[in-house]
Design a binder for these strands. Structure first.
Length: 308
DNA sequence: AATCTATCCAACCGCTTTTAA
DNA sequence: GTTAAAAGCGGTTGGATAGAT
């Protein structure tokens, strides 16, 4: 017999959220923050499991969500990032302010996949579905960027580069030391040198991650931190994810700690705006950057317009 | 008008990772 | 070092809706 979910065990409500439930959750988080998600339903007076509350908040109620249709630029960015990262939806969504991993995943599965297939591109491998017609289709679709696909592409039996389970970092400059085979040329069947050239790889200002998927307070710390150039001076880049703050430095640790003391209402009033304005400025500059291991992959968002 | 089909997307499920005790 | 709980993540499901027949 299949294992039952926590909601089943506790006979909690499931399915779509009512407006009343949304309001309860919103009010609770606005007043107290979410703290421990497992205690949220009880404190907020909801007959839901904590997991369900967390998901509802992240995917629907969060005030910094953009919603609405994806722009062409966002679509191009998703395709590009997917070619680099695979189905790492949370990492892809982190580069798209106001978008959630669920939203990006749904958009990919319902729209982009189909569109790529129509144009002769395998959405999994980002390679032409067949040669030579596929290559022609690819060129027609991608324009000059199609040159990135090596002429002697590996057979479809093993068409993908090595698994991409590397941590994504946003920031300005690649830290030294370790490097990735995949990002250093053609060993993975993908010419990253060409990609770097295509993407006008230049040092970029630090990029503030969206609040999606990662700890909102961590994002707050990052947002606030980036808004303070003096404080950011010693930190040319910051890592996303659970260990981000610790890795970035002790002063960020203390900053995040202090932010824990903030009331949620202050967060609403200030941090989202700060993050949004910072992200907006960087987007205006058109610069984005992801990391595999310690290697930066910079790319010009505007330059992706020919990607698909 | 009724029914069928396709599409979209919110929510769930279950696994993995992280954190705390 | 071990264990349990919490959080995070990606895959999948199912209900709502629109369009076609």
């Amino acid at each position: 017999m299949a294992k039952q979910s926590c909601c089943h065990k506790k006979k909690l409500r499931r399915g779509l959220w009512s407006p009343e439930e949304d309001e309860k959750l919103m009010n609770h988080i606005a007043k107290y923050g979410h703290g421990c998600w497992s205690s949220v339903p009880k404190l907020a007076g909801l007959e839901r499991c904590g997991k369900s509350c967390r998901l509802r908040w992240i995917n629907y109620l969060r005030p910094d969500l953009k919603r609405g249709t994806f722009s062409q630029e966002e679509e191009d960015l998703i395709i590009h990032l997917h070619s680099l990262l695979g189905n790492k939806w949370s990492q892809i969504a982190a580069q798209l302010p106001g978008r959630t991993d669920n939203e990006v995943k749904n958009f990919w599965n319902s729209y982009i996949k189909k569109r790529l297939r129509e144009r002769g591109i395998d959405p999994t491998t980002h390679q032409p579905l067949a040669e030579p017609a596929g290559a022609a289709a690819c060129r027609a679709v991608f324009g000059d960027v199609a040159d990135l696909i090596p002429p002697a592409a590996p057979p479809l039996a093993d068409p993908m580069p090595p698994p991409l389970d590397w941590p994504i970092v946003v920031g300005a400059a690649a830290p030294p030391s370790r490097s990735s085979c995949y990002l250093q040329g053609s060993c993975g069947g993908f010419d990253m040198d060409a990609l770097h050239q295509q993407q006008h790889c230049v040092p970029a200002a630090p990029v503030v991650a969206s609040a999606s998927s990662s700890s909102t307070l961590t994002s707050m710390a990052e947002a606030e931190h980036h808004c303070n150039p003096a404080g950011a001076g010693g930190l040319p880049w910051l890592e996303l994810g659970a260990n981000a703050v610790a890795d970035a430095g002790s002063h960020v640790d203390s900053y995040a700690g202090a932010l824990d003391e903030l009331r949620w209402s202050e967060y609403f009033d200030g941090a989202f705006q700060a993050a949004a304005s910072q992200q907006g400025a960087l987007q205006q500059a058109g610069q984005q950057c992801v990391y595999k291991d310690d290697v930066a992959v910079h790319f010009d968002v505007h330059g992706l317009s020919n990607w698909c």
